[in-house]
């Protein structure tokens, strides 16, 4: 691999994300570790969205749905296990679980199934219709979660203790950070593999010129649907981790503002950049905390910062640092 400027910037971003919690641990400041974990989780959601948004050219305004589904699967399994109530008790019995290694695949598969349906229907359209259709589906799930009483409705669902991981104490903030960080790195690696594979190249072709792809016998629909589903699965994993970070899920995870925020992470860092979402999520959380200190109206300034990035730095932060627009 050539050592490009972007490689240097990427390494620096990752080093920083590791360094902050380690230093915080030494200084006895667990909250900073929690913040770093939040960055890693949001970054993972962003890496997922980036696959659809950046590499697939699918502007999904409904990824909060998958983030929230991942969270709710986690919350529901954990609370059933904690209360010793079976999930399903009929011809056979299905129990809840508090094992992360079981919860993650279930969350991923459930979100994947939703993504197949939502994706297949939404991909019948394109452009602004696609944006709005993904939004519509996530709004349906949001309103359903708000008004369905079984799992807390608007109040959300608390499960009080973090789920378990073999041989590691998940209550230790730094341990939990490592788990989230490792998953983030795996997801980044997977996206790198996907985008460089033949599938990824075909996808890039489909994004830039669908007609040409169709003419050589590749149907963009299946490419797009595949990337949409993989993207949703990654975001769902992030949702599961976020639920465990807070030991709590609520419809707020499904709200369209959440979709907007995940999108902001991607763009702030740099659309189509491998580590764009990591830099974006880091900056967003940092800005939230710094601006919050000096004004009650911090969202006003956050809006101005975002606006400036979109207007004047279309390659995002990583774009600024590497001084070229991202193109794969």
């Amino acid at each position: 691999m050539n050592i490009t400027r972007e490689t240097v910037v990427n390494s620096a971003v990752l080093a920083l994300l590791v360094l902050v919690p380690v230093v915080a641990q030494l200084r006895g400041d667990p909250f900073t570790i929690t913040l770093a974990t939040k960055v890693a989780i949001f970054a993972l959601a962003g890496v997922g969205l980036n696959l659809a948004l950046g590499f697939g050219g699918l502007i999904s305004f409904g990824h909060a749905a998958f983030f929230g589904i991942g969270g709710y699967v986690t919350g529901i399994l954990a609370s059933h296990a904690a209360n010793y109530e079976p999930l399903f008790d009929g011809a056979f019995t299905v129990n809840g679980t508090q094992q992360m290694l079981l919860i993650w695949p279930i969350a991923i598969v459930v979100a994947g199934l939703f993504a197949v349906v939502i994706g297949a229907l939404s991909l019948r359209t394109s452009g602004v219709f696609f944006i709005m259709l993904t939004l519509a589906f996530s709004q349906m799930i949001y309103y359903f979660a708000v008004s369905w009483p079984s799992y807390g409705g608007e109040d959300g669902l608390s499960f009080y203790t973090r789920n378990q991981f073999p041989e590691l104490n998940m209550f230790d903030p730094l341990n939990y950070f490592w788990v989230c960080f490792t998953l983030l790195i795996l997801a980044v690696g997977l996206s790198a593999m996907i985008t460089r594979s033949r599938f990824g190249l075909a996808l890039g072709g489909a994004r830039q010129n669908p007609q040409r792809m169709a003419s050589i016998g590749i149907r963009p629909f299946w490419l797009s649907l595949t990337i949409f589903v993989i993207s949703a699965m990654m975001t769902a994993l992030a949702g599961s981790l976020y639920a465990d970070l807070n030991r709590f899920v609520s419809p707020a995870m499904l709200n369209w503002h959440m979709s907007g925020e995940i999108m902001v992470f991607v763009i702030l860092g740099g659309n189509r950049r491998l580590l764009g979402p990591v830099a974006g999520a880091g900056l967003y959380i940092l800005a939230e905390h710094l601006l919050g200190q000096f004004s009650d109206y911090w969202q006003f300034f956050l809006g101005l910062v975002l606006l400036a990035v979109v207007l004047f730095a279309p390659g995002g932060v990583i774009g600024i640092l590497t001084r070229r627009r991202g193109d794969v």
């Binding site: 667990p30 909250f31 929690t34 959300g156 707020a252």
Partner: peptide, 28 residues
């Protein structure tokens, strides 16, 4: 936002080591 509230509570308990928490308006 409930998730923000949870994180703030964690911060106040872990980093600031408060003795008493208070102030939340909303049931959720």
């Amino acid at each position: 936002k409930p998730d923000v509230a949870v994180q703030l509570a964690d911060k106040m308990i872990q980093s600031d080591q408060v003795d008493v928490l208070t102030g939340i308006v909303w049931s959720n």
